[in-house]
Design a binder for these strands. Sequence first.
DNA 1: ATTAGACTGATTTCGTATTTGAGTCGAAGG
DNA 2: CCTTCGACTCAAATACGAAATCAGTCTAAT
Lengths: 190, 190
Amino acid sequence: MNKDDEIKKAILLAAKHVFQKWGLNKTTMEDIAHDAGKGKSTLYYYYKSKEEIFEAATNEELNNIAIRVRAIIEQIKSPKEKLKRYIAITLTEIKKTTSIYPLVKGEIKGNTKFIDKIRKQLDNREEAIVKEILKQGINSNEFNFLKEEQLDKAANVIVGIIRGLELYLFLEMDDEEKIDIITSLITEGL
Amino acid sequence: MNKDDEIKKAILLAAKHVFQKWGLNKTTMEDIAHDAGKGKSTLYYYYKSKEEIFEAATNEELNNIAIRVRAIIEQIKSPKEKLKRYIAITLTEIKKTTSIYPLVKGEIKGNTKFIDKIRKQLDNREEAIVKEILKQGINSNEFNFLKEEQLDKAANVIVGIIRGLELYLFLEMDDEEKIDIITSLITEGL
DNA sequence: ATTAGACTGATTTCGTATTTGAGTCGAAGG
DNA sequence: CCTTCGACTCAAATACGAAATCAGTCTAAT
């Protein structure tokens, strides 16, 4: 890795650090610069804007979650069980990640366009994973009621359900039995 | 019906009319009074407060929806099919009711306590209906995976899913195929 | 190529003056 | 009495202008 990337990485680390603590709106570029031990305009030498830094920071967090989640579900063979675990993990993991959760909850004001873009990215990632799991389930004939051509919409719906539950039942998300009912409901039906 | 109730009803009608048009925050007591052809303080003779009027108006709307919904699902015998129709109707009906939808979407600012109370009432109504359907399904052995003691939590989760979808997928709720996937997912599983 | 410090202008914040509107009251018509 | 009203109050919302903040730029110095 060259010097350039080293510094970009250092800035990102500082950014994640302060975003974690203060959120998108409350952290200033100076906060990030100070935490990185650099001048403010130095940040602009490496990144185009605050939004670009935020996007990069968010993406790294998302990658970390994705890596953890994939590590867990890859060990499971049954697609049904995979999906169950996936939903349960996502429901708890996203909430734990304080830099992502406000995003999901829509707690960020201002610049809706940008935020929507980031949120969309999050959705796309989740939908991709769910779709992958669903495809496996269809191929192994474990998901009887789902048809190949419904795959996209089904993934969209399932992520929608997850997101909705995050928004609506977030207070009670630590209730294991409830999570179990949710996952069973989706995989087994009533 | 005595004169007293007549006037209360007339005020409520006016209230529903203006609430429908302007929402809770933007309609003033004077608006309601004017629409009812009465003086403002007259309203206070019949109702304790603006909130009481709003609550009464909302309850009437809710009752109307409930009556329509019940009329439809009572004609269906299979609990599974009942629940399917129930979810589909609720998803479309609530959205159509412009006085209720902002409530569900949390678009009302100020006096959170009061709004939460009303929202809770809405949830309770929905949960009661869902619970009823689920109970029938358990008794007729149509819902294999659901156990009697999970009934409360299951109803809560299903309403949570409906609410979440209303919040999150509201843009695309007119997509019939998607609604079908949602209902099938819940009743049949994958 | 890299960094910093000073600068700019658009946006936010803040303090205050003004208006609005829910709820009260006393009086008056029926 | 029962019902209705217009005038009143006071807390909260709003409008607004001044002051501060901060993303992003520019220039100059390594």
